[in-house]
């Protein structure tokens, strides 16, 4: 493993610890859905994206939009570790007077780009930002991370049409395809099948990818971001994943990241009871020992 990826791996583990801590200390939250996005979020926030935590509202920043807002503790942990606020704040999740609301809202928390939690809205909001970036001739990119359960929402597909229509390649979508939503499998609850074909039918370049392979995710996101910053005429033939066919110049990209709900804590992995549940003291200790530490500082 390269030094670059090793650093990201360490950060991902740190964020997983932070998530367990935040939910344990607040006594509420969704650990499973947080854990599945950590390896998607970490390379974006800590390697790929153009960010300046000292200026959270800097106009030319890249945008990280968490559409599946119930994974707020993961976002908050990422932002804290990236330097937007102190990690010690994470203990105040969901507490009265804390900037860390149960679901994210931008006016409360530095680094939070959009309101999220009512599912399905990240792509439309990201679409607005991508249009605004294009209007001002900016080269920033907008990453939108959605759940797969939230693809039940019709607005997702409304946005998918609009983004493809406007050829907004400065917006890059990532589906956290952990296969399970609150009540069960995504194939059974919402009837979500042929996900790749659905996106392709909407005009997108859809790539299935291992959502826990930090090395591959980093390369893929880096390529997608580089492409997204370039004007249309300069990007033909740019591959996203080595060995795969390149997208058409005007196609927006969606990564269908195959993930495991609860990834990183063995007793949570694949067990949907952890969609929303707080660890007991014993479970907390087990998680911390697996994740190698306890610190929130």
């Amino acid at each position: 493993m390269s030094e670059r990826i090793e650093k990201l791996q360490q950060m991902a583990t740190q964020i997983r610890r932070d998530i367990v801590n935040a939910i344990y200390y607040s006594g509420d939250g969704h650990p499973g859905p947080c854990m599945s996005i950590v390896d998607i979020m970490t390379p974006l926030l800590f390697d790929i994206m153009r960010l300046d935590p000292s200026q959270p509202k800097w106009l030319h920043r890249d945008r990280f939009i968490l559409s599946k807002g119930h994974a707020a503790p993961a976002l908050y942990a990422g932002l804290a570790r990236r330097g937007y606020f102190l990690p010690s704040q994470l203990k105040n999740l969901r507490k009265l007077g804390s900037p860390l609301q149960g679901h994210p809202v931008p006016k409360e928390t530095p680094g939070v780009e959009v309101t999220a939690g009512s599912l399905g809205h990240g792509l439309s909001q990201g679409c607005g930002m991508a249009l605004a970036a294009r209007k001002r001739g900016d080269d920033n990119v907008i990453f939108v991370v959605t759940g797969d359960g939230e693809l039940n929402e019709g607005i997702v597909w409304e946005a998918a049409m609009t983004i493809a229509k406007y050829k907004l390649t400065n917006l890059i979508a990532v589906v956290d395809n952990n296969g399970v939503q609150s009540g069960g499998k995504v194939t059974e609850i919402g009837g979500l099948v042929k996900l790749k074909e659905k996106w392709e039918a909407f005009g997108w370049y859809a790539v299935e990818i291992d959502g826990h392979d930090l090395g591959l995710l980093t390369i893929a996101f880096e390529n997608a971001a580089r492409r997204g910053r370039l004007p249309l005429e300069k990007r033909s033939g740019m591959t996203i994943i080595p060995g795969m066919e390149a997208p058409l110049p005007e196609q927006p990209i969606v990564f269908i990241a195959k993930t495991v709900k609860g990834k990183g804590v063995p007793y949570m992995e694949g067990n949907n009871a952890w969609h929303k549940r707080v660890p007991t003291i014993e479970e907390y200790e087990t998680a911390m020992s697996v994740l190698g530490g306890k610190d929130l500082e």
């Binding site: 959009v114 439309s124 049409m161 609009t162």
Partner: peptide
């Protein structure tokens, strides 16, 4: 022409796109 966004018959999408535009400092 470059200041008109057409979201299609999709009002929820249109409202959320407008939110995104406003976050970036525009007045939709």
């Amino acid at each position: 022409p470059d200041r008109y966004i057409e979201a299609g018959i999709a009002e929820q999408n249109a409202a959320a796109i407008a939110a995104g535009l406003a976050i970036d400092g525009l007045i939709p």
